[in-house]
Structures are given as structure tokens and as C-alpha cells.
Nucleic acid binder design. Structure first.
Length: 495
RNA sequence: GGUCCUGUGGCCGAGUGGCUAGGCAAAGCUCUGCAAAAGCUUCUACAGCAGUUCGAAUCUGCUCGGGACCUCCA
């Protein structure tokens, strides 16, 4: 069954075939490391993480490039032309690169918490100034960019005359050219809609590089084009990012690359939707961000508690990546419980006995179960419908628990089905969805201590010494360890 | 103002023209020393109006509401 992916460029689901058989080149716009990542940032990285994992599962060798934007951009194009990173660095009296390092580290830490696979290449903008300059020179040579006072602009009017600028974002070129918006310092552009490829640096600018046009810094869009081209070639399979990057960032990337490489850069454009908070997009301009560190610590007025990274990851998986999701503490709490339930069923499944005999299987149940399992791949192939797979898992959970509890006969499912169930749960939960234990139960010493406590509790229960057995359980509860009595007299624990 | 998306049960959220998505919450029952967990059961919705159709939450139109982008933005 072929993988179908919604392509933002054509606005429809298309069968995915990679350019080079067996290989996939994927570029995803990475973070600007001038500040701390917030919940909204988590969505694209988790989304493209499970896309990366799924492509790998499908047998592709994926080169996943995700950049680090550390060069800084103008805060308001054409106005102050202030370098974001440089500006904050002055305020905080830090070296720009010190700031970059700090937020890069913090970003990497967050990605690790989310169990995101590291990209194959994580290039930095500052490390690719030469490539960017080369690309700009090429565009000038092609006649699609012009230099004014040490800055270089892309000639959009000329480009749009022969190319479909605005197709990706559904923008109409005439509207862009007629924008009534008044911006200062726009006089040097031939047209208001022209975007900067290179900006000359004002004296107060800290981050600056030598270029054929004087000292300055690269425009926002050129870095992605340059790095994507360098590591993935003129045409590659997937370009990803948040929906809010469609315009102008991705649209401009297409223009730059098309002129420079004579080719539209990406076959598939994949965009994730936004995380909203009370219906409004989470973003700096709205002043409604919850930083990831606040998320994990619960230290934020809107949070009733701390939320584990895996809860956030699960929360994101529970809805389709192209739908907006509204954040609230209550919703996250629901996700937390749901994940716990699912994970416990998974733990049970792992230990489920595999029926060897083919006799006594419940054909109806067997059919149902097989259908639910087989739909995993089907749903994922249908534009990564993670939410539907989770729903099927929740359908399967009562079956798994039922077998354990004895409501369902042990041999109701054939051995092959149980093995398949175990395999697919592992493939999906761990390998594709990238979920992990929030409970760390593998420390040897703790295991031993718990076993000891369980033994003592079993003994006291056998003697009907409930005071002791309750004391053990209650004390453990206050330590955050949950102890449960099993049907067969056994006990299990988790935290 | 322009372009586009969207409106599902108490809450969150899938969704295909005809068959119970799922999760959380709530209620009852079973199991159990108690508890927790688990299992079973109940709560069956698609903004409004009109149309297409044998049949629409799913298609079309209008109305109302929400959002994104148009400016840095995941």
C-alpha cells in the first residue's frame, strides 16, 4: 500500500515516491536560537520526528536536515534592520555566540526530552555564509536580484512574470505588489514586495560578515535555500515546517532556489498546523507562550501541574498534524491519563502468553483484532493519521487486559496474532511514535527493594495483617510509586 | 480589506455520502480485606437555514461564530 501525503504545494494528497529509490531527502526549518523554545515549537519537531521515523520504518534511508538559525534576522524588514541575536546579546551583555550556544543547548535538551531522533545534519546559518553568498551571486548573475547600498534584493516582479510566485501560500501576486502597507527604508527596493537576500549591516550590528557588497548579514530566506541545496541537492523530496512559514519564507525559498538551481526545491511541502491557546495561536506577538521548561516544571499560571514530555508528545499525536490543536491544562491531563492506560496495556501485552495451539480461537475476535492491527499501516499511509492508530490501540487495550484478567480466554487469539500484536505495538508506540516509559523501573537496586517490599506485603496480607500491607502501599504512594494488587495474588508497581 | 481553513456529545478530538471512532469526565455493576487498576454497561453528537440525493455531520449555497496568513513567527 502506497504512502499518501498531503502536499501543500498542490493542495491534495499525493502518492509519495522518492526521487532516489530507497532514499529520502527531508529538510525541516529549525529553530531560531535567540530565545527559549515554547510549546508551539514542539509541534513541528515532533511531527517531523514521527514522519522521519515512519519513512525509516517503511525502509527508506532518510537524510533529515534541520537547520539552526543563529545568524539573526531583522526584526522588521526594512526598518531597524536589527539583528535579533545581536540585539538581545547587547542587552544581556553576552557574546552573541554565547547566547546562541545557550539556546541551542536548551533546544537540544528539549528534543532529547521529547525523544526526537537527531537529524542527520544540523547545519547552522553562520556556518554557511559562504554558500549563501555564492547563491546570491548566482541569482544576481541570472538577473533576478539587484544590489543597492550594500544590500541585495530579490526582484520579485521579474520573477513573478514568468513563475508562479504565491502558489504555495495561495497568494495573489498583484495583491502583494499593491500592498498599501507603509514601511520605512523601503525606498531602495524596486518594489515593496521584494525581499532581502543580503542586508548591509549598520555600525551597531555585532554579527556581520564580509561580502562582495560590503559587510552585512544574510536575509532570512536564503539560509534554508543554501543549506538545503548543499546537503540535499537542487531537488529533494520533502520540505517541512509550520504553516505560518508558508508565506513569505517558503514561498521565497522556492523563488530563490528555482532561479539558482533551475528547479523547484521540494517535491512535497508538508506543513503542520498551529498549537493554539484559548483559540489563539501561541506566539511571541500574542504574549501567550508557555515555554517548554515551564511545561515540564508546571511553573506557569495556566498550568495546574507539570506535564511530562511524553504527555506532550502523546497530546500532539492524538490529533492530525494538519489540524490546529487547542492547548489547555485539562486536555493535557486527559492525555496523561490516556497515555498511562495505553502504556500499561502495552506492558501487559509484552508479557502475554503466546498460544501455541490453533484450537479454540475466537474467530470473530481474531478477525476484529487483525483488522485493527492491519489498519495501523493503512492509517499511517493515509497522510500520517496518528490519531486513528491510537484509537485502534484503545480498542485493543480491553482485549489485551481482558486476556490478562481472564475475561477473554487465553487461546482466544492465535499465537501468530498475539505475536503480531506485540510486534506492531512495539513498532508503533516505540519506534514510530517515539513514546517511552515515563516510568523508570529498570534501576537494579530499586527493583530489588520493590521485590522485597512486595514479598513482605504478600506475607502480611496472607496473615490478614492489613495494617502492615496498607502501610507499605500508602507509604509507596507518597513516594510516587503505585502498587497494585493483581487478580492472581501478585502485585505490580509503577511510578 | 484580501486569501485560505474551520465550527462534532460535559470537555478534547477522528471521520467516510448509508454501518457505535477513540480518549477524558460522569453514573451503575463485576472483581477485591480495602484501594487502585481492569472488565462490562449507560450518556449516541455533528452551528443555523435552504438545496442536491432513495439517503448527508459528510456534497452545494447562504447566514452566524472561531482561527491562520497577508509583518518576525513552528
Amino acid at each position: 500500500m502506497p504512502l499518501k501525503v498531503y502536499n501543500s504545494y498542490t493542495r491534495q494528497k499525493e502518492v509519495f515516491n522518492s526521487i532516489t529509490p530507497g532514499h529520502v531527502g527531508m529538510y525541516v526549518c529549525g529553530p531560531t536560537v535567540s530565545g527559549e523554545s515554547h510549546l508551539g515549537h514542539a509541534r513541528p519537531y515532533i511531527t517531523f520526528d514521527f514522519i522521519f521515523r515512519y519513512l525509516t520504518y517503511k525502509g527508506y534511508k532518510v537524510r533529515y536536515v534541520r537547520n539552526i538559525t543563529d545568524a539573526g534576522h531583522f526584526e522588521e524588514e526594512g526598518r531597524e534592520a536589527e539583528d535579533k541575536v545581536g540585539k538581545k546579546a547587547i542587552l544581556e551583555k553576552l557574546e552573541p555566540m554565547e547566547l546562541v550556544q545557550k539556546y541551542t543547548n536548551l533546544f537540544h535538551w528539549a528534543m532529547l526530552q521529547f525523544n526526537c531522533v537527531e537529524p542527520s545534519i544540523e547545519p547552522t546559518a553562520t556556518g554557511h555564509i559562504v554558500e549563501q553568498i555564492n547563491m546570491i551571486e548566482k541569482i544576481i548573475a541570472e538577473g533576478y536580484a539587484y544590489e543597492v547600498n550594500g544590500s541585495v534584493y530579490f526582484d520579485l516582479k521579474k520573477y513573478a512574470a514568468t513563475h508562479d510566485y504565491g502558489k504555495l501560500s495561495g497568494r495573489i501576486m498583484d495583491d502583494l505588489l499593491e500592498t498599501t502597507r507603509e514601511l520605512d527604508g523601503q525606498q531602495e527596493k524596486r518594489d515593496k514586495a521584494d525581499f532581502a537576500l543580503w542586508k548591509s549591516a549598520a555600525p551597531e550590528h555585532i554579527m556581520r560578515w564580509k561580502s562582495p557588497w560590503g559587510e552585512g548579514f544574510p536575509g532570512w530566506h536564503i539560509e534554508c535555500s543554501a543549506m538545503a541545496t548543499k546537503y540535499l541537492g537542487a531537488e529533494f523530496d520533502i520540505h517541512g515546517g509550520g504553516m505560518d512559514l508558508q508565506f513569505p519564507h517558503h514561498e521565497s525559498e522556492i523563488a530563490q532556489s528555482t532561479i539558482c538551481n533551475k528547479h523547484s526545491p521540494a517535491r512535497f511541502w508538508i506543513h503542520n498546523n498551529m498549537i493554539t491557546i484559548n483559540g489563539k495561536k501561541m506566539g511571541k506577538s500574542y504574549n501567550n507562550v508557555i515555554k517548554l521548561t515551564e511545561m515540564f516544571s508546571g511553573n506557569h499560571p495556566l498550568l495546574t501541574q507539570a506535564f511530562a514530555p511524553m504527555t506532550v508528545r502523546f497530546f500532539i499525536l492524538q490529533s492530525h498534524y494538519r489540524s490546529p490543536v487547542d492547548f489547555s491544562s485539562e486536555t493535557l491531563q486527559a492525555s496523561e491519563k490516556a497515555l498511562k492506560r495505553l502504556w500499561e496495556a502495552y506492558e501487559v501485552l509484552k508479557k502475554l502468553p503466546v498460544n501455541i495451539q490453533a484450537q479454540g480461537t475466537d474467530a470473530a475476535l481474531e478477525t476484529k483484532v487483525l483488522q485493527w492491527i492491519n489498519e495501523f499501516d493503512e492509517f499511517m499511509d493515509d497522510d500520517f493519521s496518528t490519531a486513528k492508530i491510537l484509537a485502534n490501540m484503545f480498542e485493543l487495550a480491553p482485549v489485551i487486559n481482558g486476556i490478562k484478567d481472564g475475561h477473554i480466554a487465553v487461546n482466544a487469539l492465535s499465537g501468530a496474532t498475539v505475536v503480531l500484536l506485540q510486534k506492531q505495538f512495539k513498532n508503533y508506540l516505540e519506534d514510530i511514535f517515539g513514546l517511552t516509559h515515563t516510568t523508570a523501573g529498570d534501576e537494579g537496586a530499586l527493583q530489588g527493594v520493590m521485590q522485597l517490599l512486595i514479598d513482605i506485603r504478600k506475607q502480611s496480607k496472607a496473615k490478614k495483617d492489613y495494617a502492615t500491607s496498607d502501610k507499605i502501599r500508602n507509604q509507596l504512594t507518597t513516594l510516587g510509586i503505585e502498587l497494585k494488587d493483581e487478580k492472581d495474588g501478585g502485585m505490580s508497581w509503577n511510578r
